[in-house]
């Protein structure tokens, strides 16, 4: 999960307070280390989506006492920033998630914009999440493909890793 110089990295329980504290920390660090205000804004925006995605989808790992377990990394690359998240997903959710990411990755900039607007205008949002706009937004804002993998953990869970690169 590691590339470049780490700005923030975390492994453990994910809850609303942790995300709020992390975003504050990221903002402080970016303020200090990243000169261009629009780059800071973009990174912050993408981190908000990534962390809230994680927050809405973290699953407990059975028999380990690890509740709401997740991982995230933000690091600096020579030419941009690397953002990665990881969490357990039930294997039953894998086909839908995979299909969705593959679709996003197959679209160009204009198609992504149209897809975003379509989902925004047509999909009902659950109490839980943003109705599936998060991943589309991450792809739009970074201009990056969504790199992902599913690593089998046991019969019912896969570890889902997602990463993007934001080129400066």
């Amino acid at each position: 999960m590691q590339q470049g110089n780490i700005i923030v990295a975390y492994k453990g329980a994910i809850d609303a307070d942790l995300i709020a504290d992390t975003l504050t920390l990221i903002e402080t660090k970016l303020e200090r280390d990243v000169e261009h205000s629009l780059t800071r804004k973009k990174i912050y925006n993408v981190m908000v989506e990534c962390l809230q995605n994680l927050f809405h989808h973290v699953d407990a790992i059975p028999n380990t006492g690890n509740l709401n377990y997740g991982i995230f990394v933000l690091s600096k690359l020579p030419n941009g920033f690397y953002i990665a998240t990881g969490n357990m997903v039930n294997v039953s959710k894998k086909p839908v998630l995979k299909q969705k990411i593959d679709k996003i990755n197959s679209l160009n900039k204009d198609e992504l914009k149209e897809f975003y607007k379509f989902v925004l205008n047509n999909q009902t949002f659950s109490e839980k999440g943003g109705g599936g706009l998060g991943l589309i937004d991450i792809a739009r804002k970074t201009g990056s493909k969504l790199n992902y993998s599913f690593v089998p953990f046991n019969d019912s869970l896969d570890f889902f890793k997602l990463s993007v690169i934001l080129t400066e």
């Binding site: 989506e49 809230q52 205008n121 109705g131 998060g134 937004d137």
Partner: peptide, 13 residues
């Protein structure tokens, strides 16, 4: 708005 997340984008709509 300085920032808004996708969860807000639907409410703004």
């Amino acid at each position: 708005l300085e920032y808004f997340n996708t969860s807000s984008s639907k409410c703004i709509l």
